[in-house]
Write a protein that binds this DNA or RNA. Structure first.
Length: 862
DNA sequence: ACCGCCGGGTGCC
DNA sequence: ACCGCCGGGTGCC
């Protein structure tokens, strides 16, 4: 029963299939257009203006839409403005040459009207023609045959996109420039203002949090023009017009202000409290405390107030209007907060911690019995829900969350919303709200495209339209046209607030954390265990050496991992691994790894997963999302490997053994393993490491009996081994591992955080189950029972203790068995660390294979 | 006049 | 559209 729950077949798991779309890029469209470049442009006329209401201004971008079912001409091409209003058609004798290019997918066409205004019947239009190196020849040939003049790109008749060349920027360089987009935002950018939160916020706030509050409140109550809009006086008229600086769209209707944006502070700067303060402070009918400048300088005082502006880029509308007016809210009162399931409880905890009891009513929209009446939901101050709930309910009008008119929406960990075609993105974008905030510590993960979903969520016109986003930001960026980066920078500056942990204000860091010291504690195995260890290592070396000689290490990877796993287990406690005699029987008798009977293979994979095989996906080099494991024991993102199997032959990219989609097995969500009841009890015997750890804990208790400790291990069985000795030594402890329900986890956390003198002082955690976001600041001692070769995983674990809210100095002790695989894992960590610093270096599949083999050699001293 | 010329109606696809 | 084009009205000077 245990193993069935663990390894599930992807092909039959509808739950996983649903999740597939929710991560990673899905847009084939993008890829299709990625290699397209501007061939040149054709001058045409837009005709029939008198029949349509769509208006355009000079230099405005227009969209060209094929209209194959037009009753008068099957080559018809509509010309449409930003609002989607039709302006006219492309004159038919040009359309008949352009339409086939589009219909045959040979080219992409886009238009700019140089003189859009004041035309009654027709107007000129430059049709930009994009194609790729394959279709370039045909397109040119066809146009030439048709007698259509294709003007080369660089004759540049004006028009913002004139400089599109065919010198694409390498992804790496692009990535680098993207990273810079967020640099230095907030450091010298305009005035710094803070604001006191409502009195219902009971915790003290850092200055930078009050600054975020002031920024958000001001944004929410703003009447300013959204980014990329200017006011313009029209000649010969007293009327004001509003002009979009990207598309040159001109309108009399004032575009509504952007009441929201992107809070992109680093992790650990306390975004949650800042947001709770926003919810508690900027409420309907509230009286706001004034927004005040921080340390006004002489220059500030002398400068005319009108000139003091947060937003300085000329591309962006300036902040205008008053600041200290009360919130203009008389509609809905409810804030919807959407977050990943793993941080749901964090919101609840922080609400309890930072707000006056009863001052904000909260409803957890989660679980099968959730209230589905929108009227009831709208009576809470806060409704908390998850992306998965949102995605599963869909974007339809009839779903409860879509029926409510929200006061504001907060998307927590908003970087998770990046695939524009994913269900959850659609659902998020469809939500009705007056104010919208996206919150993330990692604003750009891959490409500028990730930001497109954000534009859709914020409803920032015209960038929330994919075709305009592509032509004004994404394509210039990939083509090395500076306009893309300039726009992106202006955009980010206008909508985002980002502070980093390392940022300094007046020579001090925003958040000073207590010190963290890491030390090693070396452990000698008992003579008995040493003998066992050496024997297993000797045997393992033989087996692996044989694989090395025949060049089949990666084909027998499951076996290799199994051996490494056994060694790591013995270092902790020999009771963690089966009796020695059973250990290599399978491997040694095995002739062909392809014909391993399934139960044995499942058993092996199960063990590998339990042993915490958190490899990076060998395809995308990141931590795998929706990790799957192959029968040959290689781990990938589900999406990555499925794509690879489609594109390439049906082979495992690591070891080239046959592989099809139906062979993939999903790794269990966390460590959701129901422990075998027989192994629930730890072995009666102790081990050197267990003894060493208990000794350290007792020593620490002598120094300070109230100081709490957390203990991380990869092996939940190791935690079992510790429970008995801990009790014997008189420690009260709680435990968190992957097999526990979220309710039980919460209970363990609550009891650990209690200040009651009888409360537990020790928290046993399985490294994998302790997901990001977990707050363990009640403890100030950390024990890492076993090392793992991805140092980031260990650092993340330590940061759960060493984070905002920690008041004591933190000590971390890493237990390492001397002369064992463990000190080699430390070496490997060092190597990984160095490798990580020269990241983004494209590694070929061959290099990766080699690296993995080298890793094995290092670990086994071969 | 099976023309030229005039002037009104008309106008995308 | 202050165009072109169509087609009806018209017709010495």
């Amino acid at each position: 029963m245990a193993s069935r729950a663990v390894v599930q077949n992807v092909a039959t798991s509808s739950q996983l299939v649903d999740l597939v779309d929710s991560d990673d890029e899905g847009g084939t469209q993008v890829d299709e257009n990625a290699d397209k470049f501007l061939l040149g442009f054709v001058e045409v006329n837009v005709v029939g203006l008198q029949y349509y209401s769509g208006r355009v201004s000079d230099q405005e971008m227009v969209r060209l839409i094929r209209e194959p079912h037009n009753p008068y001409d099957r080559n018809a091409i509509q010309v449409v403005n930003i609002l989607g209003d039709q302006i006219g058609h492309i004159e038919r004798y040009k359309a008949c040459h352009l339409a086939p290019l589009v219909d045959d997918s040979l080219a992409l066409i886009e238009g700019i009207v140089p003189h859009g205004s004041k035309n009654k019947f027709k107007m000129p239009c430059l049709v930009h023609i994009f194609s790729n190196s394959v279709t370039e020849g045909i397109v040119k040939q066809r146009l030439r045959n048709a007698g259509v003049v294709l003007q080369p790109p660089h004759s540049d008749v004006g028009g913002p996109e004139g400089s599109f060349g065919r010198n694409p920027v390498k992804p790496k360089e692009q990535r680098q420039s993207l990273d810079n987009v967020f640099e230095g935002l907030g450091e010298g950018a305009g005035e710094r203002c803070t604001m006191e939160p409502a009195s219902t916020i009971t915790s003290a706030m850092f200055p930078h949090q009050k600054e975020a509050l002031a920024w958000m409140v001001r944004t929410e109550n703003s009447s300013s023009l959204p980014p990329f809009w200017n006011m313009q006086k029209v000649r010969g008229s007293k009327d004001l017009m509003y002009k979009n600086t990207i598309t040159n769209f001109l309108t009399e209707k004032r575009p509504s202000p952007l009441l929201g944006g992107l809070l992109a502070d680093d992790m650990g700067l306390g975004k949650t409290l800042a947001l709770l303060a926003l919810v508690a402070t900027n409420r309907p009918g509230a009286t706001l405390s004034p927004i005040v400048k921080v340390n006004p300088t002489v220059a500030d005082v002398l400068e005319r107030p009108k000139k003091k502006r947060r937003v300085t880029s000329s591309d962006v509308a300036s902040v205008e209007g008053g600041e200290d007016h009360p919130p203009r809210m008389n509609g809905p009162r409810t804030t919807l907060i959407v977050c990943p399931l793993s941080v749901l409880s964090n919101w609840v905890t922080q609400l309890e911690e930072h707000t006056e009891p009863g001052s904000l009513s909260v409803y957890l929209y989660h679980g099968p019995d959730r209230i589905r009446d929108p009227k009831l939901l709208a009576q809470f101050d806060i409704v908390l829900t998850t992306y998965n709930i949102l995605a599963s309910e869909g974007a339809g009008e009839y779903t409860p969350l879509q029926k409510v008119n929200w006061l504001r929406i907060i998307l927590d960990e908003a970087h998770l919303v990046k695939n524009p075609s994913a269900q959850q993105t659609k659902a998020v974008v469809a939500l009705k709200a007056e104010r919208r905030w996206a919150v993330t510590g990692t604003p750009i993960q891959n490409t500028a495209r990730d930001l497109f979903s954000l534009m859709q969520f914020l409803r920032l016109e015209p960038l929330n339209d994919s075709s305009y986003w592509r032509r004004t930001v994404e394509r210039p960026l990939t083509n090395g046209d500076p306009s893309g980066l300039v726009r992106l920078q202006a955009l980010i500056k206008a909508i985002a607030l980002r502070r980093t942990k390392d940022m300094q204000v007046d020579g001090r860091r925003l958040v000073e954390l207590p010190r963290k010291t890491i030390s090693m504690h070396y452990v000698e195995l008992t003579p008995e265990d040493r003998e066992l260890y050496d024997k297993v290592e000797e045997n393992g070396k033989d087996v692996i050496e044989r694989f090395m000689k025949s060049g089949t290490v990666l084909q027998n990877y499951a076996t290799v991992l199994q051996i490494i796993l056994r060694l790591r287990q013995i270092c902790n406690h020999p009771g963690l691994c089966p009796a020695y005699t059973e250990m290599f029987a399978a491997e040694l008798n095995q002739k062909d790894s392809k014909n391993v009977p399934p139960p044995e293979l499942l058993e092996k994979l199960l063990n590998i997963i339990k042993g915490g095989a958190d490899f990076d996906c060998a395809i995308c080099l990141n931590q795998p999302t929706n990790a799957v494991i192959t029968p040959c024991a290689h781990v990938y993102c589900q999406r990555c490997i499925e794509k690879s199997l489609l594109r390439n032959k049906e082979q495992c990219p690591m070891c080239r053994s046959d592989l099809s989609t139906s062979d993939l097995m999903a790794a269990p969500k966390e460590e959701g393993v129901q422990e075998d009841p027989s192994s629930e009890q730890g072995p009666s015997k102790s081990s050197a490491k267990v003894d060493a750890l208990i000794k350290l804990l007792v020593e620490a208790r002598v120094k300070d009996p109230t100081e709490k400790s957390v203990i991380f291990s990869q092996f939940s069985q190791m935690l079992n081994c510790l429970e008995g000795p801990l009790s014997d030594a008189g420690f009260r402890f709680v435990r968190l591992d992957g097999s526990m329900t979220s309710k039980k986890r919460q209970a363990a956390l609550t009891s650990f955080h209690s200040k009651d003198p009888e409360s537990p002082t020790i928290f046993l955690l399985s490294l994998k189950a302790a997901g990001v976001g977990l707050n363990l600041v009640s403890a100030s001692r950390v024990y890492m029972v076993d090392p793992w070769w991805n140092p980031a995983v260990e650092e993340q674990a330590m940061d759960r203790v060493h984070r905002l809210g920690q008041t004591r100095d933190v000590t971390v002790v890493r237990l390492i068995v001397t002369d064992s695989i463990e000190d080699r894992i430390l070496e490997l960590q060092e190597r990984k660390r160095q490798l990580a610093t020269c990241a983004f270096e494209k590694r070929s599949a061959e290099q990766q294979r080699l690296m993995r083999i080298q890793d094995v050699q290092l670990l086994m001293r071969l």
